[in-house]
Design a protein around this nucleic acid. Structure first.
Length: 416
DNA sequence: AATTCGGGGGC
DNA sequence: GCCCCAGAATT
């Protein structure tokens, strides 16, 4: 399963680099690096988690796993990975799939541009590269969604290229080995390039990450079971727990959104009015209920006016008549925390039963009144069954569940 | 160099 | 609450 290249280039590169005085490292000799590699790979061989993408040599599958794992705990990515390879077993299957299906498969993983870029890249590979995933760092790096880390990871794991792959784990391991509170990107990369085992580069890179994930953890590192503790300056200094220094975090904005859940329950099956977000920006291409920003303290009157505005903008015929026949009903607020934004969604159910001409706005009138960045690409009445086929952000999914709870078979009337 | 991209798990 | 997770793209 693991091929070996072992051309020896790595050693020559290492020897040359280590003779340079400007690169102080945790190792001072080629023998030490050899020992470091041996211990780390021994740890990997005996302790590594049995992750599904470690049982394949398919470059496409390894590529998928690397994209899914970005900014995501690998345990979270595992079930997505399995389903993905069933649905899209090779690059051609992915290239042939519509973007909406791809987003649905990614639903819940977050950072949806990863799915969009993976899909775009699959089409490039299928259509212009004969279906062959590039086997070099530069070739991989040229594909959308594959950056410095992923190109090195895929090149080393799938193609035995002795390239560095610096993920967050590796940066932390480096910071502790060197007792460096704030390592620079190039510093870590250069070090990783020098120490990567040219005989087993993919396993070596995974071993560094495995160490960071399971032993050299952000808090309470288990130095007692670390295979390379002898090399660790932070351990000697007793500073492992405070290395690296925490990153300066950007301040998070807050936002309150009034959400309109228009329900047409005049027919046998209920329909919900939903819109598809623009193809760029936050949650690109995902479906949602109409909403607009509101003040944290919004009165009843302003709420009703906003709902009326949303209705008009989306082609829902409402007005005084509606309010009198079926007053909007508030649902439990949904709090959602994005990395850079906290949103409180305040959903209101508005029944449009019995109203005539409930056709959503289309074309140039699509969601009139919304700003360009918020303008949806589609507005549709979606049946309660079909809504399960749409790619929904987690917060919207919660609103759907909440809105349909009264109609759900076996619903607990005390819930909600 | 700083921001913008989700969502969840651990403490 | 806060932190960070097998980061990439954009500005």
């Amino acid at each position: 399963m693991r091929r070996s290249v072992g051309n020896g280039d790595g050693w020559r590169r290492y020897d040359a680099a280590m003779s340079a005085p400007s690169t102080p490292g945790f190792v001072e000799s080629p023998e030490a690096v050899r020992s470091f590699r041996r211990r780390l790979l021994g740890f990997f061989d005996s302790e590594a988690r049995d992750l599904p993408w470690r049982r394949t040599s398919d470059p496409y599958a390894i590529w998928v796993s690397e994209i899914m794992a970005q900014q995501t705990r690998v345990e979270t990515a595992v079930p997505y990975y399995r389903r993905w390879l069933e649905r899209y077993p090779d690059v051609h299957a992915l290239a042939a799939a519509p973007i909406d299906a791809v987003l649905k498969s990614w639903e819940g993983l977050g950072y949806y541009s990863r799915a969009r870029n993976l899909h775009r890249a699959a089409r490039i590979v299928a259509e212009t590269l004969g279906g062959r995933v590039p086997d070099t760092v530069d070739g991989l790096r040229a594909l959308p969604g594959i950056g410095e880390y992923a190109s090195g990871a895929i090149a080393s794991i799938a193609f035995d290229r002795p390239a560095p792959a610096v993920a967050g784990h590796v940066r932390r391991v480096f910071a502790r080995l060197h007792d460096d509170p704030s390592p620079t990107g190039s510093g870590v990369r250069d070090w990783a390039q020098r120490v990567v085992d040219p005989g087993r580069p993919g396993d070596f890179n995974q071993a560094l990450m495995e160490l960071g994930a399971t032993v050299c953890t952000p808090r309470r590192p288990d130095c007692g079971s670390c295979p390379v503790a002898d090399f660790c300056r932070a351990r000697m200094a007793g500073t492992a727990e405070v290395r690296p220094a925490p990153k300066a975090r950007t301040k998070v904005k807050s936002e309150v959104r009034l959400v309109a859940v228009f329900i047409d329950d005049s027919a046998d099956e209920r329909h919900l009015l939903m819109r598809r977000r623009p193809d760029e920006g936050l949650l690109a291409g995902m479906w949602e209920f109409p909403s607009r920003v509101a003040a944290a303290r919004v009165g009843k009157r302003a709420t009703m006016e906003a709902l009326d505005d949303l209705a008009r903008a989306h082609g829902v015929p409402v007005g005084k008549a509606l309010a009198e026949r079926a007053p909007p009903r508030p649902l439990e607020p949904v709090l959602h925390k994005f990395s850079h934004l906290h949103v409180e969604y305040r959903p209101w159910v508005v029944s449009t039963a019995g109203l005539d001409g409930s056709e959503p706005a289309q074309g140039p009138d699509l969601a009139a009144g919304s700003t360009r960045a918020e303008r949806p690409t589609l507005v549709r009445w979606i049946s309660a069954t079909a809504v399960e086929e749409l790619a929904l952000p987690v917060a919207q999914q919660r609103i759907v569940t909440s809105a349909l709870r009264p109609f759900t078979a076996g619903a607990d009337p005390r819930a909600g």
